[in-house]
Design a protein around this nucleic acid. Structure first.
Lengths: 144, 144
DNA sequence: TGACAAATGCAACTATGTTGCATAATGTCA
DNA sequence: TGACATTATGCAACATAGTTGCATTTGTCA
């Protein structure tokens, strides 16, 4: 997702000590082209260094609460994590393949959501919008 | 959600025997003003008749696979179920309160999603779009 | 160094959903 | 109606995702 992010500074900007584990988790999330599940993040970090499952969950919770990472529904039962939108990464929808479960990022402008109507009429504070497109991806279509 | 639906006919149109349990589950979903979790559906049906947890999950799976019910991410860890869009119920976004977890339906037209861009450029089959607005609901704002 | 706080690990737990198999209910046909 | 097949349901056990409590380790600063 990003070559422009300095993860250490990101953590510090969020008021978090840039520990090795936090850096590793954030790097895994930031360098992947689509959001990852906690399970995948754990597996990836574990390939190069040992880390505990619980530690991963706790770091993810911290990163989300500090606004560095966004937690999305992956379309299935588990939640997925991606870099939160910022100046380098505009918010964008995701596509979820119902056949293979894969998740991919769609172009930020590819799907227009008009929030104005809702902001006018809705009595509450809007903090974010998640748009997920479900269907069958190209690979699975070919395979069928 | 609906006073116009004949649940028995809906089930039969989906090729499902209209058993008592299926009718009860579908009625609970259809008569609630917002999508419900499997847990809530089980609890509601159990207030008037006994039904097993597994049976509820199996019925929900059937209803979703036949297109009578849609399965959405509730914003938290569990999935929620609502009547699938049809001529009486246009598709609509949902609001999820991050404070109390409540889910509510938003007006169908309140949030415009432009699918055309994506349909042109995306190499895959699009089956549905889920839009969820996250934030803090009116009640929780007042309480804070 | 010693004391304190923050981060991590481990085990156990909760919540949500699924599977295998037995039983009960329902439909079909002679 | 009775026998059989099919379908729906229930129960127990399992699987997966995430959380909590508490002990240990690591880092920071006087």
């Amino acid at each position: 997702m990003c070559g422009q992010c300095n993860y250490r500074s990101l953590l510090q900007a969020g008021g978090l000590e840039p520990t090795l584990n936090r850096l590793r988790v954030l790097e895994v999330i930031g360098s992947n082209s689509s959001p990852l599940s906690a399970h995948d993040i754990l597996a990836t970090v574990n390939r190069t260094a040992g880390i505990n499952r619980v530690t991963v969950y706790r770091i993810l919770g911290l990163l989300v609460s500090k606004g560095l990472v966004e937690r999305l529904s992956g379309g299935g039962r588990s939640l997925v994590y991606g870099l939160a939108p910022n100046e380098h990464h505009p918010a964008h929808p995701h596509f979820h393949c119902r056949s293979c479960g894969a998740l991919q990022c769609l172009q930020p402008g590819s799907l227009k959501v008009d929030l104005r109507g809702i902001e006018r009429s809705f009595a509450g504070e809007i903090q974010g919008v998640e748009v997920r497109v479900d269907g069958i991806c190209r690979n699975c279509l070919k395979r069928a």
